[in-house]
Design a protein around this nucleic acid. Sequence first.
DNA 1: CTGTTAGCGCGTTCAC
DNA 2: GTGAACGCGCTAACAG
Lengths: 342, 342
Amino acid sequence: MKKEKLAISSRSTGRITLSDVAEHAGVSPITVSRALKNPLQVSEKLKEKIAISVKVLGYIPNHAARSLASSESKVITVIFPSLSNAVFPDVLDGLHDTLVSAGYRILLANTHYSSEQEETLVKTMLEQNPDGIIVTGIDQTQNTRELLKLSNTPVVQIMELDQNPIDMNVGLSHFDASYDLTNYLYSLGYKKIGFIGARMDLRSRRRMEGYQKSVLDQNGNEYVLSSLKNTSFKQGSELFVELISKHSDIDAIAFSNDDLAAGALLEATRRGMRIPEDIAIAGFNDLHFSEELIPPLTTVSIPRYEMGKQAAECLLYKIANKKQPICNQINIGYSIVPRQST
Amino acid sequence: MKKEKLAISSRSTGRITLSDVAEHAGVSPITVSRALKNPLQVSEKLKEKIAISVKVLGYIPNHAARSLASSESKVITVIFPSLSNAVFPDVLDGLHDTLVSAGYRILLANTHYSSEQEETLVKTMLEQNPDGIIVTGIDQTQNTRELLKLSNTPVVQIMELDQNPIDMNVGLSHFDASYDLTNYLYSLGYKKIGFIGARMDLRSRRRMEGYQKSVLDQNGNEYVLSSLKNTSFKQGSELFVELISKHSDIDAIAFSNDDLAAGALLEATRRGMRIPEDIAIAGFNDLHFSEELIPPLTTVSIPRYEMGKQAAECLLYKIANKKQPICNQINIGYSIVPRQST
DNA sequence: CTGTTAGCGCGTTCAC
DNA sequence: GTGAACGCGCTAACAG
């Protein structure tokens, strides 16, 4: 076990390097490099020798050096507003599964729903020289958009559809989805339909606008209540109480999110209201629990895992084929899920 | 706008480098480096000049180069089993907030509850030369443990308490928590207490064992049902039906997770059973919705965000003070939350 | 407070 | 199929 023979350089980290492996195997460093990255270019004999040396020495490639020499980082940056919102973990799963099996790593950051934090994060993340970037939504600051464009890194905006994408875009129209849902409620015979939203990020606002458009189309009245707090069961229950005490004749409510809807549904039950006879309730996102509520919740389903997967695939395709992206924009769609709460 | 004057080297990536900034500002590269990293060592005059050049040229530091030269990556690797389980996003938030404000980035990976995948991921992640590593649980393979130890990187195992931690450890005893909860149920007068678990990772198993110990202490009978599927409302409802049809005289059930408990609670309600009169239900984790259920769910609360935060702080401390860690092991504790479902 | 020198570990380029 | 030389962009070490 000859070891500590180096210490010649004051800067050496002591970690086993490619050269150490090369020396051990009696070949040149570049051969080791090739054995690891382009095995076809190296003879079987040497590959075996090298494989043994790698094992014996416990060699671990240094990613920074590789990245510096090849200007490929094998890192994809993913920027989400938050993970508490159950929507994102599912999207992330889709991204993760696709990217990891293609040999990429995910650098994750949360903006906490702040465009300013997003800008800072994008700046920091760009230092990593990521091979690709995923950002959430389409309301990046002008600065962020420019940074991203100048960086020349493939970018996918997810969740929404951008009229003028930074680069690539995989999402759906939250306006249309909510418009359709509200129309569906009208078609069921409800007359006074309310809307309750929380957090009111751009996607929630679009959902509200879709609702408003539908109300307008039907010559109905708007009953809107929104809060800037995060969505939660509790928040849904509170807003629900507030809205029905103001407008006791409302017969249906669309919520910007299943969390809110579920909270309201439980609150209504607690108060002895019958659903949907006394009040109909609809959500958005089709979270895992929504089908299990009593009664099961009418909502809008969006293909979250699939969206992550497709976004990852777009990125991988563009990385591989520097030229044309396979997609500029993918509308991943949505579907209204009618259940017994309406 | 003098620009394209380089192109001397065939390998240049075209990105603005430190040297470009130095030249533009009329100083040496190292001064720019210092202006950015150790501003105190540089005079105000030069700092201003440099700041301007950075802006004008749109300089973005190259992280790989920095990391290679300084052997500091400013990257923390976080390895979770999954994010679908609502427990982890909260822990991740605690980690994220603490680490990002300290200038670190998070490289995230999911094992999908597989120790083999974990081993592969740890290997890959080690290539990044992370400044620290967070892993979930204590059931790493022997290989993983050795890799981690050899890497000489600060490691924190979270969620559970390890008798013999790899390095540092922030968690709690799931056995004790479940034992206490079951004792609490007995103290309420329930006689035939069942346990339902899903996924049955090590933490779920410990919870089951805590339950079993309590049953033994009370000379009671065990009524255990478990499945390897993931936890969900639906899974909870299914297992619940299975258990009560086998043992119709059970008067209380402890679940390994709030998701399962909530599903069962809803199923019981659907069947017209009164909770807790006909059947008492208790969960684990105190997820956000648990308090809002009808009736509110008795459960065990664990400080998830706090656990993430403390794990991050341990890591940061050890990174800063190469010697002694501030903590070897932190028991973050838990608390029984009595509500109306029992 | 500022600069010079050298090298972090690997992969590209070009030669054999 | 294999190797030598050099450079990727930055900072540690040591001047001055």
